[in-house]
Design a protein around this nucleic acid. Structure first.
Lengths: 384, 384
DNA sequence: TTGAATACACAACCTTGTTGAGTTATTCCG
DNA sequence: CGGAATAACTCAACAAGGTTGTGTATTCAA
């Protein structure tokens, strides 16, 4: 599915696309800004920014929100993103369910749904799409002709041609075909990468643009974001941290055997607990279940090792944990994980915590799927 | 020293820069090409390519080399890089020596020098620069007004402000000041990153643009190259793989305690061998020294683990080993390293070997330092 | 009240890439 | 052997987008 694409020549219209994205990205990260301020931040002339803003305002993507006061000179009109100016549809396919969410331009989910899937067969998914689309659009009046596209999150890793290999029957399929009934531009990513872009929207106002994201899915995934863009590797499968061997008293074991939902479920089952879903897990944690506390204590070490690996290899601003694991448990893991004292990321002027809790919920990847589309709208193609 | 810079707006002249780089990059990777072929590869119109080529030819960066034959239609004039069209100066500062190399436009070193440094004090380096520059220019007549700039490789990791922290007395210095006597545009990188860009030039014709580079320096460094650009992390210090703990029979040890020049030297010293420099090491290896064979056997396991980590986390096309380790030893390591059988990079259609031997010599980082400058000339700023 | 500072609009201009018509050289095929 | 097909390349007109210079409105401070 993924193919590292060759860089293309720049034409005037591609320049404009880039600069539009740049302006939108400033507003996403910086809140309300005036034209002159945007011009200073982007290095464009105020005139260029003015033209672009007029265009974006015409498209309904932004609107004036008051004027700046308190400084000399003509007060600047402040622009903000218009949440209702555009929408993105996020879809997540899991072995047991199809999830969907509709995000507004600011990344807030305005609608979401979860449909059980007996088998995650492509035809079954395709059949559900028209109804899904209708429900989503019914939730947001006016969104119909303002849909930027649809993002799809699938369990990775991907094969070179075709889609996901973790879902049975999907190998070698074209995403465009399976999701054709949506009649939208389709962007596909693995669940961890999608979730990371979902987190990016929340982190952008804090100035976090380069980070790693540990994602609890079926196993444990890692997404790497650099300057707001995904680091995908040569074939789109970077971040398979779950396979990394971790030394234990019983010899090396894959990280995801120690730190994942399957791991906690197995541990609890062996202790005689039933923890079929996230709610049950959260309840156990809230109740101070000793078996769960035991698992957390055992998983904290591997998490610390993984954090050390990631910091040393990737030097991120922070590492975000998200995905299908109750927030309380993730918070507990973050609090007790023993971080390595020697790391290039352990710098005195660091402002971000080494580990932080992200959007921990079933919705992390669906929201991320929608964010795939928004990200394309906000992140300029031009590298620094 | 490193600062992740914000993306900037695109202006017509920046577009031209990008497209010039794109054209040069095609010639670097693809050898002799005609205008129409370049246009097809870059997605630009033939006219745009024609204009750019005329400009580049005027600047002396490329020249016609014959015409294509054997196909229908007007035979295409083939263009190649003109090696003597531009030069880049590479400088490497080590604790014991100052190295320099002059690269032509194709990345070939046309001159190099090694000056001993009692103390690698900044003032001592600054004092040597004018002489160095003169010697380099004397070796390549006409290079004086065709110098693109100077690249500087320093042992990392870097502090946020100022230069290298591994070299005593350099912390907090500005590279522009220390290297001001060169009167050239200065680009600074850590040694592993520089070496990786040196390898990139050699790998580009094979279509390798995303790879990792394990570098033998004082310790062990890792550089990550994605689409021809360095992955630097949030603060420029990605790739500190030497600190990663590796399980051994005596408990976890940092990778660079098992796989580095210091490691092999210590091992040989304990066995009563003297192996002060690379020549001595190479001689021992050629002579089939059992203590050295012993070290290689012991280091192969950690190398395999490191390769597994890198493949799973970064999904590169290949992993290149280079730096201050005799080529024969590196070759032996690559041959016996046990690679993990489970890895996202282990794909059926893979064309590159998982591990390969790079430019193993004292010069890897100096050449890479020069390549820093060439890379800027060849790699477009536009991401895919 | 006056002047400095600041945001912004308008218009002319520059750079760059695209498009379409026309030229030239080579191969293919009758 | 000669015409048709093919492909590379050039020239000229055009379009898109950004910059620069000039002018105006609005606010703060002296």
């Amino acid at each position: 599915m993924f193919q590292s694409s060759a860089p293309r020549g720049v034409t005037p219209s591609r320049s404009r696309d880039h600069n539009r994205q740049l302006v939108l990205g400033q507003l996403q990260a910086g809140g309300a800004l005036g034209r002159a301020e945007i011009a200073r931040r982007t290095g464009l002339s105020t005139q260029a920014v003015s033209n672009i803003i007029a265009e974006l305002e015409g498209d309904g993507l932004l609107r004036v929100e008051g004027t700046a006061r308190g400084s000399r000179g003509l007060p600047a009109r402040q622009y903000v993103l218009d949440a209702a100016g555009a929408y993105a549809l996020g879809i997540e396919v899991r072995p047991g369910a199809l999830l969907a969410a509709l995000l507004d331009l600011t990344g807030r989910p305005v609608w979401n749904a979860r449909l059980p899937l007996a088998r995650a067969a492509p035809e079954a998914v395709t059949a559900l799409l028209p109804g899904l689309r209708d429900s989503a659009l019914a939730a947001a009046p006016g969104a119909a002709d303002r849909l930027l596209g649809a993002g799809v999150a699938l369990p990775g890793p991907f094969g070179r041609t075709g889609i996901a290999s973790d879902l049975p029957g999907w190998d070698g399929l074209s995403a465009a075909e399976v999701f054709a009934p949506l009649d939208l531009a389709i962007t596909v990513e693995n669940d961890a990468n999608a979730a990371a872009l979902g987190e990016r929207i929340a982190l952008a106002p804090e100035g976090v643009t380069s980070f790693a994201c540990l994602y609890f899915g079926t196993g444990l995934g890692l997404a790497i974001v650099q300057d707001g863009r995904l680091f995908a590797g040569a074939h789109g499968n970077a971040g398979e941290i779950g396979h990394v061997p971790i030394p234990t008293s019983e010899g090396p074991q894959p990280l995801e055997a120690l730190l994942s939902r399957l791991s906690v479920e197995r541990h609890l089952r062996e202790a005689g607990r039933a923890a079929a879903d996230m709610d049950a897990l959260a309840a156990l944690h809230a109740g101070g279940d000793p078996a769960l506390a035991d698992w957390i204590a055992g998983a904290a070490g591997p998490l610390g090792l993984a954090a050390g690996l990631i910091e040393n290899l990737l030097d991120p601003q922070t590492i975000v944990l998200c995905g299908a694991m109750p927030e309380g448990i993730v918070r507990a893991l973050v609090e007790v994980a023993p971080l390595p004292d020697r790391s290039v990321a352990r710098r005195p002027d660091r402002t971000q915590p080494p580990l932080r809790v992200g959007r921990c919920s079933r919705l992390a990847a669906v929201i991320g799927a929608g964010a795939l589309v928004l990200n394309r709208t906000f992140t300029p193609a031009l590298a620094a």
